[in-house]
Nucleic acid binder design. Sequence first.
DNA 1: TGTGCTTGTTGGCACACTGTCAATAAGAAT
DNA 2: ATTCTTATTGACAGTGTGCCAACAAGCACA
Lengths: 206, 206
Amino acid sequence: MSLEAEPQRQRLEPDARRRQILDCAIRLFGERPYASVSATELAKEAGVARGLINHYFGGKRDLYLEVIKAMVTVPPPDRVTVPDGTLTERADAFIDWFLTILERHGKTWLVAVAGGGMASDPDVGKILSDADDLAADRLLEALGPAITEEEAMALHPMIRAYGGLIKSTGREWIERRSLTREQVHTLLTDTLVVIVESAIGASHTA
Amino acid sequence: MSLEAEPQRQRLEPDARRRQILDCAIRLFGERPYASVSATELAKEAGVARGLINHYFGGKRDLYLEVIKAMVTVPPPDRVTVPDGTLTERADAFIDWFLTILERHGKTWLVAVAGGGMASDPDVGKILSDADDLAADRLLEALGPAITEEEAMALHPMIRAYGGLIKSTGREWIERRSLTREQVHTLLTDTLVVIVESAIGASHTA
DNA sequence: TGTGCTTGTTGGCACACTGTCAATAAGAAT
DNA sequence: ATTCTTATTGACAGTGTGCCAACAAGCACA
């Protein structure tokens, strides 16, 4: 007796449907660990048949890879960092910018960098590793002309490692609330400067 | 026709059987990620019925928690670190000792600290977090009387975060082989000294 | 040596989850 | 109104897991 009975099924453009499922997956995987989110629940939450997930993404696992990829791609490549200044000033500015965007997307970012709980998975590890590479490049770029090209090459793996410090420090700040933003800022800036100066000094003497 | 037909079933002491299954689980979970190791395979590998795993550990998940717990408990509480010397010397000695034991148990350690691929799981996270706490305590203790009790309190979360740097740096060294032991040694020592001095300096002025 | 008992051990049952795929119908084109 | 494309569905088969009653290995006792 309804005037406009909604059709049982709603046809959407493949891209739209794919995006809808992906958004729903990002939300659910952001709240609970991978294993505790069933494809059935995911489909129900998205108001879709479970088979559609396999149709669009191949499988639950593949969908999860997309989620992680979307999560680690969060930070936009802003360029608000000062283009000149001493190494310390540059590092300071970069960390400050990063902490600001971390203050917003912090929760999501933490889930992502933890691998969502599957860091040992080769494919997941690859995604996270690539994200680390990109982040390291961004950071080295932000430090600007203070370092040469070959110095950047040598620094790259160290900055990758430094990324681990960023993550754990961020976790202490956002999740455990055991550090203030000022403490985090100081710690990350100081260590970054030391790492860069130490490595550059070593490369100069070598 | 066998002279001494082995009995189909072999009765073991509960502790022995439990240890046997746990050892087997440590080996398998150390090689492949959690999801790809089935309880069936685990039981077959251990030469036991699958039901026995549930009987002794409750479930595959609970067994996994035991494995992680066993893995992160690897580092023995040695006391070879120099009891006196400057902060830099102490840090240097500690890092050197740590890198040496890491050279042996490195592979296992990396699997463990990555959460084996389930870091987002609350229970797994708790185990890793406790391990981080213990490691931070050990490190602060190794730095010795150079820092006071309340300084150690304030430093604790920072050292926890520093643990993240240790992990990522160790991964670059052991897994990716993008850094040499000397580079790792220098990086970790320098950053540790800076973190401690910076925090202590701040607490002195405060 | 034979018998009974304790309990470590087994195999099968029921349930949940996942990937696959042919059948279905929503929506545009005619 | 009808046809056609294809997004969408529901069911099926396979696999993994927790649970539990039945079984027997090894010890104690007569």
